[in-house]
Structure formats: C-alpha cells, structure tokens
Design a protein around this nucleic acid. Structure first.
Length: 564
DNA sequence: GGAACGATCC
C-alpha cells in the first residue's frame, strides 16, 4: 500500500489526459479493493474521484466491497447506483460479482432482482452467472430455487455441480447430496477437493461412519489429495461419526494446520470425553504458534464444562478475554453450563446479568437445566417464563420444562405444560435412533414396531429386560414421562428408540463389532444406565451419539463418567 | 479481472 500511495501521488502531480488518468486510477482502485494487501476505504476514495468510471472499476468495487470475511451490503448499493445510471457496459462479471455479494449477506430479495436483470441482460447463458445464481439461492436457503436454476444449465461444469452439491450438503439434505454426487459421476464430471468437502460434510451430518469411510476410500481411489480444508472436513467427519482414532490419524498427517483444523480436533476429542487430550491439543496448538480463535475457545470451554474442570474453564475464559476475543453468546453458554454443572447456578445467573449482549434462548435453557439438576424450583420457573416468552413455539422448551417439573415431582404443573402444548398445537420432536448394519441405515422411533423384523426384535428386547433386571436394575419413572405425551404407555421406557436400535444391533452383529447408534435427541438417564449394563452383560462395546456428544459404553461404564 | 469447500454452545 505504501508504494501504491506513492504512485497515486505521483499520478496526481502529472497533468495526464482525463482518459489516461481514469485508466490509471481505475487500476489503483481495483488493486486496493481486490488485493489482500489492499485497503477498501482507500479504494472507495480513489473510485469516487475517477472522472470516467468504466465498468472494469465498477466490477472491481462491487467485488471488493463484500468479501466472505467482511460481509456488507455495500456491493449491492453500488450495483443499484450503477443501475440508476443505466448500467453502461454491464457484463457477466458485474452480475456474477453482485450475485456473490448477495450470497455472502443472504440477500434473497436483491438476489431475485438481479436474477430478473440477468434475464433481461442476455448474460443468462454465462456459466459464471449461472453458477453464481445457483450459489446465491443455495446460500439464501432456497435450495429448490437453486435446483431450478441448476436444471436449466445445459453444460454443467465441475463448479456448477460442486455448487449445487454444496448447497444440499449445507442444508443437511444428505440423500439429495449423494444423489447429485452420483449424477455428477454419471455425467462424467470428475469431482475435486471442493466437491469432496461437501460430500464429506454430508456424511458428518448423517453421522454415518460407513458412508464416510466409503467416501474416504473413493477419494483414495480417485487420488484426490487431502488439502487443509478437505483434511479438516475429514477430521470432523471421523470425530462426529464416532471414530476419534481415525480423526486423530488424519489430523496428525496434515502438513499445515490452521485454527480451524486444530479446533476441529479439539472439539472432536472433547465430544468423545477425552478432555485431557483436548486440553493437551490446545497447548500444542499454542506451542505451534497457531492463534486460537473464538471457535477454538468454544471448543475448549465446552470441554472443560463437560469434564467438571471449573478452574481450568475460568482460566481459559480470562485467557480468551486477554487475547482480545469478545465473548459471544456461545462462549457464555459454555461458561454458564460449566458453572451450572458444578452446582454454581447462582454464579451462572450473575454472569448472565453482567452479559453485554442480550441472552438468547440457549442461555435460558442452559440455566434451566442447571436448576433442574440442582432442584431449584422457584428459580427454574422464573427462567422458564422468560424462555417461553422469547420462544413460545419451540417444542424443545416444553419438553425441558415438563422434565424439569417431573424432576421436582410437580406433576400437576407438568400436566399444565402438556395442556399448554396442546393448546398451541406444538408437537414434540419424535425421538429417533438409527443404526447402520452392512451399509443399510435402520431407523427406529420410540415404541415403533414397524420394522420388518419386529418379532425377532421383541425377543431381544425381552431378553435384555430379563437380564438387566437380574442385575438389580430398576427403571426411573421420571425419565419416562418427559418424552411420552400419552402417559398410557407404561412400557415406553423399554421402547425408547435408542434401545430398539441397540437391540437390533445386538441381534444382527457379533462381538467384537461395535454397536454404533445415532440419536436425534439427548440420551435419557435411564437409557444411559441400561446401556452401561448391556455393555457389560453382553460384552459389547456400544457407542451412542446423541445430539451433543458421544457416549462410549464399555464393560459397564461410559466415557462421559456419567457427567453430561 | 470472474463462479464451488473446512472448525460453533444447551
């Protein structure tokens, strides 16, 4: 920039013809807005003083004013200004750049307007504009519109396929992601690292280790190099799919590791209950001179919270603030959770009071869970009131509140919550567990006997209940109630979806195969106990991924040490 | 001078 400023000054002292001056200034503006070494505010100043602003510098400004690391609507305003001037010289670059800007700030309405401009402009057949449109709709969470545009593309190149696959993957539409990935292969277009990142992420979302392994093997066969981004996606996939060893192996093999890669590894270790390892990795990261960012701290704080490391948590909190990272809601959630789990609910509430940003529903839910664990009825009720005011239609809140009342034996209040739900026509999220057997995903809902092998499964379930009762186990009734709407289901506990899935796994596979179950909700306390016993009496390793983390049951105990 | 990718709390 220093050299550029000198050139700029030099240019201004010369009496250049207007056209030459415009040309030089537009080059300077373009450099300032586009180069990583540039300076966007300098670009703005230069741009505003160009006598003849050609389309080249307009494009550069539109592109430079909204970057992924600096989202802003300025590019869209610039485009509007250009529109007011009748768009002299508008080209496919302009349209692609402004669409990219719309995708960065999720500006659907403006994006649609640009889309109609594309129609009129005659640049609709530019592959750059088409892909930018697909990307814009996908980033605005309108994947179906993105698909419509994608369908219209006659010659789909690698980028177009990748964009669409990425759109589905980000939306968590796993089947669609894979269908498109197959379509791409059928069309004879070779996927690259960027494509594979999206496909790997879809496996992470599905929690499907078999799928992930298949994709990894495919990459090896196709000799697709594992770069930093793809490596991070793989580390994340293996960790979230329950194979922390493999995640670690891939992580260790990365030649360059940035904050994202380290964070991914740290969070992975933490959700597997390997807290010491997580903390060790944090220290290794700092020793490696990689600066932890706000997400790394979320990972390490939650690791401390889940393992009851209160003083370490406080230390990391101060460390974070000293590093100049302003705590976000997520950081507060980790810290509040950490304090609540340690029984320090009052201190957690003080922290909420002193928050500089307004607390969101997650904060209130965390405190409410804390009140539940510590039997604080009055405080919990107060929190619940705020929570329901803030989010009156979220089923999760009602489930939590009703389990809260159940835990303090307030049955009448609990049924009032149920009634309120019925009034507001709020439906519970049905508990659902899945297990993968020989590449097939079997899904079970609570009390669901629709599986074709249901009779055989009943026998296994029966066998489990007999054998665990022999060990002296008794089920806890409060756990039944908060998941069941109709209390008439007395045996509902034995039919929790995770138990059905585990029973199926026990029956279909033999030791030493690990039974891996994915839950959409948090595992209940009673099932947690049962899994421990089953792992011992059946001598099987069981890994359950619930909404938040992993539980690995081996020989009667769980890696979470019952602290979750 | 262009379009696609990785880590986020309860």
């Amino acid at each position: 920039m220093r050299v550029l400023r000198q050139i700029h000054a030099h240019v201004l002292t010369r009496l250049l013809p207007i056209s030459a001056l415009s040309f030089v200034l537009s080059k300077i503006a373009a450099f300032c807005s586009l180069s990583p070494l540039g300076d966007i505010s300098y670009a703005r100043r230069v741009f505003s003083r160009i006598p003849y602003q050609n389309i080249f510098c307009w494009n550069a400004m539109i592109r430079g004013c909204s970057q992924v690391d600096n989202p802003s609507k300025e590019s869209i305003f610039l485009f509007k200004k250009l529109n007011e001037r009748g768009c002299p010289g508008l080209n496919s670059f302009t349209l692609a750049f402004v669409l990219k800007a719309c995708s960065i700030v999720s500006a659907l309405e403006e994006g649609r307007q640009v889309h109609s401009r594309v129609f009129r402009s005659g640049f609709g057949s530019s592959p750059f504009v088409q892909t930018a449109l697909v990307n814009m709709y996908a980033k605005c969470e309108e994947v179906w519109l993105a698909q419509l545009v994608f369908d219209e593309i006659t010659e789909r190149n690698l980028i177009a396929w990748s964009t669409m696959i990425g759109g589905y993957s980000r939306a968590g539409l796993v089947d669609e992601t894979f269908e498109l990935f197959r379509g791409m292969q059928m069309a004879g277009v070779e996927p690259d690292q960027v494509t594979m990142v999206s496909v790997v992420s879809a496996c992470t979302f599905a929690g499907s280790l078999d799928m992930g392994r298949w994709v990894h093997a495919y990459m090896e066969k196709q000799m697709i190099d594992i770069d930093l981004e793809l490596g991070t996606a793989l580390v994340n996939m293996y960790a979230k799919c329950g194979c922390i060893k493999k995640a670690k192996a891939i992580f260790d093999n990365l030649s360059v590791k940035d904050a994202k890669a380290w964070s991914s590894m740290i969070v992975g270790l933490a959700i597997h209950g390997l807290y010491e390892e997580a903390l060790k990795h944090f220290a290794m990261m700092e020793a490696d001179k990689v600066i932890p960012d706000h997400l790394t701290f979320i990972g390490i704080l939650s690791a401390c919270g889940h393992s009851g490391l209160v003083s370490e948590g406080r230390r990391f909190w101060s460390h974070m603030i000293e590093s100049g990272i302003k705590p976000s809601t997520e950081h507060y959630v980790c810290m509040i959770d950490l304090l609540c789990r340690a029984g320090l609910v009052v201190e957690a509430c003080t922290l909420v009071k002193n928050m500089t940003i307004s607390p969101n529903p997650v904060i209130w839910r965390t405190i409410l869970v804390g009140c539940k664990k510590n039997g604080m009825l009055a405080k919990g009720e107060l929190i619940a009131e705020w929570l329901l005011e803030l989010e009156p239609l979220n089923a999760e809140n009602y489930t939590l509140l009703s389990s809260f009342y159940a835990s303090v034996s307030q049955w009448e209040k609990m049924s009032l919550v149920r009634m309120k739900m019925k009034e507001k026509r709020i439906k519970l999220i049905p508990a659902c567990s899945s297990i993968e057997i020989y590449g097939f995903v079997h899904e079970f809902k609570m009390g669901d006997w629709s599986h074709p092998e249901t009779n055989e499964m009943r026998e296994v379930i029966g066998d489990i209940s007999v054998r665990i009762r022999e060990t002296g186990y008794k089920s806890s009734i409060t756990e039944v109630l908060h998941r069941v709407v109709d209390e008439e289901k007395e045996n509902a506990l034995g039919e929790h979806s995770e138990r059905l899935a585990v029973a199926y796994g026990l029956w279909k596979t033999k030791a030493p195969a690990v039974i891996r179950v994915v839950n959409n909700l948090r595992i209940c306390g009673d099932c947690h106990e049962v899994m421990k016993i089953v792992s011992k009496i059946y001598e099987r390793e069981i890994i359950v991924r619930d909404r938040f983390r992993f539980h690995k049951f081996v020989n009667g105990s769980c890696t979470c040490k019952d602290y979750w």
